[in-house]
Design a protein around this nucleic acid. Structure first.
Lengths: 339, 339
DNA sequence: CTGTTAGCGCTTTCAG
DNA sequence: CTGAAAGCGCTAACAG
């Protein structure tokens, strides 16, 4: 096997008969007064040798890696992947690289990734924060490392945060159910402990909206807990006299759990039960009936996050703020009219 | 705002009253003859100062980044994401980091990512190769950079390759249809040009199996092309006298396109049409009827890829080989018995 | 307009 | 068992 040695800036310099700093300047496009022929010369040498600069070495001197880290709380949420894709798009345009880590809702894992990415000298972070690592986030700030939060508010830490107007999202759902004549409206949400912003806010929004639309918000119509346990809970309620005619699924995972239950029970949707989910799901239109969902503008949110972070990195910081995004209604066929 | 300076190995050395090389040795667990108290001393200093080694600097000297790159052809395939997750799991265990790039089925983009990752000095690559960058792959090999291919065979390049036994997968589907009494069996596949291994092999496998099971393989029952155009093609065939009673979707994206068509036409599944898809899809059980699929053992395949690559990286290369994995049948309810 | 020099933070001989 | 010194590949003053 032919062994091709890795070629460095020195090789290029020799080949082009200039000093390596000249090559470096060429590489960094600092050719204010550089001779045309020097440039051509260098360019040609680079091509002939097939030279590719060593990013690692560059990062070391520049103290800047052109790399950012994303830490998502749980990659299983469709929203996370949508946001990631959007951030990657924005960053690619500016030749910024992205490293994605999935904390899996585990603060220990999250902390591990955080320090690992710091070791890797990333220029900044976009984090879907777990609630339990406040001191680590604070340390990031102390080190002047740019950070943007996504999806979850951490009041203790002063960081720009991007999230859905969750109250509005829940309200939209209740309003829609109400318009279609539903009174017995339930909600299913993943567990509320630890208190994750979107879950808490969506439930609060649900309660407020029920009130607003003059519905009775029964405690037994609020299902929360580990999703696998949901089945049992739902089973119970559907054996009682007054059953819900409509259920709001607080997020995509809750929706899937609910749908599994419905399929198992062979429920006829939407006749027997109307459903709205918060969060887009890939199979919403494919499902029978089409799933009415309330979506987050994930693409814009990701873009905004990237912009805020890159601004900080490039020393144009904006002061920490909460950015709320409007939910978007996608009406399909999973809500029946029972007037 | 309090400005905390980044602390380096020198700070630790001073704090612990040793030289920085001693600290370095401690960090690299080369404490053969290091005094117990020196160790404790260093450990304590590290903790007190909150020191985290600079990975970039370490990589520069070690000429090893403990990072690998994955280039997927198209992240939209569920299979890609499953494999990625599996690779990440394997790598995390060994403290290897992973950078994922989506070439988007675009050879230009692929090449760009390849050189970018080389610049970043990744220790190796796992690639879902597009067919058009043979010379770039070859160059990787010339530079002695470890590579493993996934999903697609590149006969021109001598690299270990992991993929499904696609022939078998198609055969399984035809066999199942045949057992259930279907004769008019069709196949829908994404476009065959450029010739992507799994598509070609699955179609070939389909043809062979049709023959094997004594079915007539009609050319007009082979749908291939851009998925969005599929609708028109299917429309035509379903207006003819002899219609397919069963369709094999050659991959997940083809399945989704097919399902969309069925939903639009309000077809009753599986009574009017039986369906099998190759590749697992997230909503397979949720769908009505449950989707019978033939799955790739993505987890094992990813794990194997990681192992092969890491072996190469750690100088235990295995000679290039093609690894074929057995498809797995997940029988659900989308195939009717028409005996 | 180009070359010399001094690091970036860490690892690695090699003396002591 | 520990420290001094050289160097990874590149950038950034600063002379010239």
């Amino acid at each position: 096997m032919k062994k091709t040695k890795k070629i460095t800036i020195n090789d290029v310099a020799k080949h082009a008969n200039v000093s390596k700093s000249t090559v470096s300047q060429y590489l960094n496009e600092r050719f204010e007064y550089m001779g045309e022929k020097t440039k051509d010369n260098i360019q040609q040498s680079i091509e002939e040798l097939g030279y590719a600069p060593n990013f690692i070495a560059r990062s070391l001197t520049k103290k800047k890696t052109s790399t950012i880290g994303i830490i998502v709380a749980n990659i299983l949420h469709g929203f996370s992947t949508q946001v990631i894709r959007s951030i990657e798009d924005s960053c690619n345009e500016k030749d910024i690289h992205v490293i994605v880590c999935n904390a899996d809702d585990d603060p220990v894992k999250e902390k591990k990734y955080l320090t690992m990415l710091q070791s890797k000298q990333v220029d900044g972070f976009i984090i879907f924060p777990s609630r339990q690592n406040t001191s680590v986030y604070q340390q990031l700030l102390d080190y002047q490392i740019p950070v943007v939060f996504m999806d979850r508010i951490m009041p203790e830490v002063s960081v720009s945060t991007i999230l859905l107007d969750n109250y509005k999202a829940a309200e939209l759902a209740v309003e829609h159910f109400s318009e279609k004549g539903h009174d017995n409206i339930a909600i299913v949400t993943p567990k509320l402990e630890p208190p994750i912003t979107p879950r808490i806010e969506r439930l609060d929004g649900f309660r407020m909206a029920m009130d607003e639309f003059g519905k009775d918000c029964r405690e037994e119509f609020i299902f929360s807990g580990d999703l696998p346990l949901l089945r049992g809970q739902l089973n119970k309620i559907f054996k009682r006299k007054v059953k819900p005619t409509a259920i709001l699924a607080s997020n995509d995972l809750a929706l899937i759990a609910l749908l599994e239950f419905c399929k198992e029970k062979e429920m006829r949707l939407p006749e027997e039960l109307s459903i709205i989910g918060i969060d887009e799901v890939s199979f919403a239109v494919l499902h029978n009936p089409g799933l009415t969902t309330i979506n987050q503008p994930a693409f814009e949110m990701g873009k905004q996050a990237a912009e805020l972070l890159l601004a900080q990195i490039n020393d144009h910081p904006t002061k920490p703020e909460i950015y709320r995004y409007e939910p978007r209604f996608a009406v399909r066929s999973s809500v029946s009219d029972i007037h």
